[in-house]
Design a protein around this nucleic acid. Structure first.
Lengths: 202, 202
DNA sequence: TAGATTTCGAGACGAAGCGTCTAGAAATTG
DNA sequence: CAATTTCTAGACGCTTCGTCTCGAAATCTA
């Protein structure tokens, strides 16, 4: 989309775009996702509602863009030569991140559940990136021979992110460093072949 | 609340209660949770809106009651002498159930995310029962010595229900008998005692 | 039986928020 | 300058919510 073929007319205002994303972020912090309304975003950003509807299809997509705009996106991909240790580092960081973004994530998920179209957008623009990072960690373990061939890697990923989301959603147990350590340990052991009981050293 | 201390006045109409729950169920089937409105429930049940608001705080609670009213609640607790086999049976049944109730569950979860009060109700009235069933299965394994002392049983449960909900929510992979088998196998192996064959990484 | 009390069905009501629309100003092209 | 497009501002009709009012019905107490 280079502006080589720039159309006539007034170009889109970058200032307005940023003002909308920032206003959305502030509104999310103040009122939560449930209290987010197009009218308030527009008022706070000093922008007409039409300007928002012109570029986003729903408030959920604005919120998603706002979230992605803030989350600078540094997902670490540790490679310490041991699946358990790699998972531990990965989970520790991931759990930490979700702490601050948690409330917004929950709102976006709620929207996903009620709106199939947004669900696809959310999956592709947010979840896919996270899964890809974890996928790399698992690939390293496969290359090292820690994960036997034929293991369902997608299921393994789901065990990681499943616990994460489940606790994020139902808040019955914490998501802290201890959780990360225990979960990393369980996952690493779950793929270890139980027959010959291979001993791995650090 | 036996009617020994029955108050004066017209008693609550059981017919109206059932009509509301049934109308809610039908509306859920026809329009999904997103299209559920108090007005349509009232109209379909032949009931005043006030009658609904008198007994339920929100449409989410009506939907939850409607769901619990239909789900006859037969959660099996297999005991075949082997954790892997028990989990396989348990998961197979659970995954099968969620197939039909899935859409409603997703709506109720969406509501949970937006409404903290309902989240507590949903957790206590729906999730707790399921978790208790799985807990029994795990307890049997503990008694048989299949799960070493000190294992975080809550985390184990979360690995099971985490995968279930994660796939229910994001629909990126199926929840079928194969999934149940693989997941049961992974979980069973993850707790297999590592005393003599695992090296603790710090 | 006569009141007191409570729920019943039906629907009016104001408050919100949605998404669309209009109007006139502003910015950019050729 | 004319054509085109986006801009802010806000009015508009629509839907749903949750509350409220009304008179009728059902049940308890006296």
């Amino acid at each position: 989309m280079a502006d080589g073929t720039r159309r006539p007319g007034r170009p889109r205002s970058e200032a307005a775009r940023l003002a909308i994303l920032e206003a959305t972020h502030d509104e999310l912090v103040e009122h939560g996702y449930g209290g987010l309304t197009m009218e308030r975003i527009a008022a706070r950003a000093g922008v007409g509602k039409q300007t928002i509807y012109r570029w986003w299809r729903s408030k959920a997509e604005v919120a998603l863009d706002s979230l992605l705009n803030v989350a600078a996106e540094g997902i670490p991909i540790p490679d310490e030569g041991d699946l358990g240790a790699d998972l531990d580092v990965f989970l520790r960081h991931t759990f930490g991140m979700q702490g601050s973004e948690g409330p917004v994530l929950m709102g976006l998920l709620a929207q996903s559940l009620l709106d199939r179209e947004f669900a696809d957008v959310f999956r592709d623009r947010f979840l896919a990136g996270r899964r890809a990072a974890l996928s790399e960690v698992l690939d390293h373990a496969v290359a090292r021979g820690e994960i036997p061939a034929g293991t369902d890697l997608v299921l393994l990923q789901d065990m990681v992110y499943g616990v994460l989301w489940y606790r994020l959603l139902f808040r019955h147990a914490p998501l802290n460093d201890d959780t990360a350590r225990d979960l990393a340990s369980l996952i690493a052991r779950s793929v270890r072949n139980g027959n010959n009981c291979t001993v791995r050293t650090v």
